[in-house]
Simulated scan of single mutants.
Amino acid sequence: MPIFEYKCNACGNEFEELVFDRDECPPCPKCQSTDTGKLMSAVRSKVGGFRPDSGGDSGPAAPSAPSSGCAGCSGGNCSSCG
């Protein structure tokens, strides 16, 4: 069940709402107007691993890719690296 961001066209209030139907536009919680529309949201995701600049110890660092003279891939394990 995704949380979508909406904006009320009547009062300008921006709000988030958990919705079951993608096409549903809920009423504004501030003014109760049904003249609302979905906003485009930025997507964020987190993948496990340690980032040295994060300031925390969240686990081991991601393995570094081996260096290879092959221009066809970055890992050195493709058929063109022979």
Rank of each mutant, 00 (worst) to 15 (best):
C8Q: 02
S74I: 01
Y6I: 06
F15K: 01
Y6M: 10
G12R: 09
V47S: 14
N77S: 15
F15Y: 14
T36M: 02
S41T: 11
A71I: 06
P60W: 03
D21E: 12
N77T: 14
F15S: 01
P60D: 12
D35Q: 12
E24L: 03
K30I: 02
T34M: 00
F50R: 15
I3M: 10
C31A: 08
G12Y: 03
D21K: 13
C78D: 02
S54I: 07
G56H: 11
F50L: 12
G56E: 14
S45G: 04
D21V: 15
G69C: 12
A61M: 14
T34C: 00
G12S: 04
A71E: 11
S45T: 05
G76H: 03
N13I: 04
D57K: 08
R22S: 13
G76N: 04
V19S: 03
A62K: 15
K38L: 08
G69W: 13
G55C: 02
K7S: 11
K38G: 01
V43K: 04
S79F: 10
P26R: 05
R22W: 12
G48H: 10
G59M: 12
S41G: 13
G72R: 01
P29Q: 01
G37R: 07
G82I: 03
N77I: 10
G82W: 05
E5A: 11
C73V: 14
S33L: 08
R51I: 14
F4L: 15
S67G: 13
C11G: 04
R22D: 15
G49C: 08
N13L: 04
T34S: 00
F15N: 02
M1T: 09
D23K: 12
N77D: 15
T34W: 01
D57G: 13
C11E: 07
G56D: 13
Q32T: 09
N13W: 07
T36Y: 00
N9D: 06
V43T: 10
F50M: 05
G76T: 01
D21R: 13
P60K: 11
C25V: 09
S80H: 04
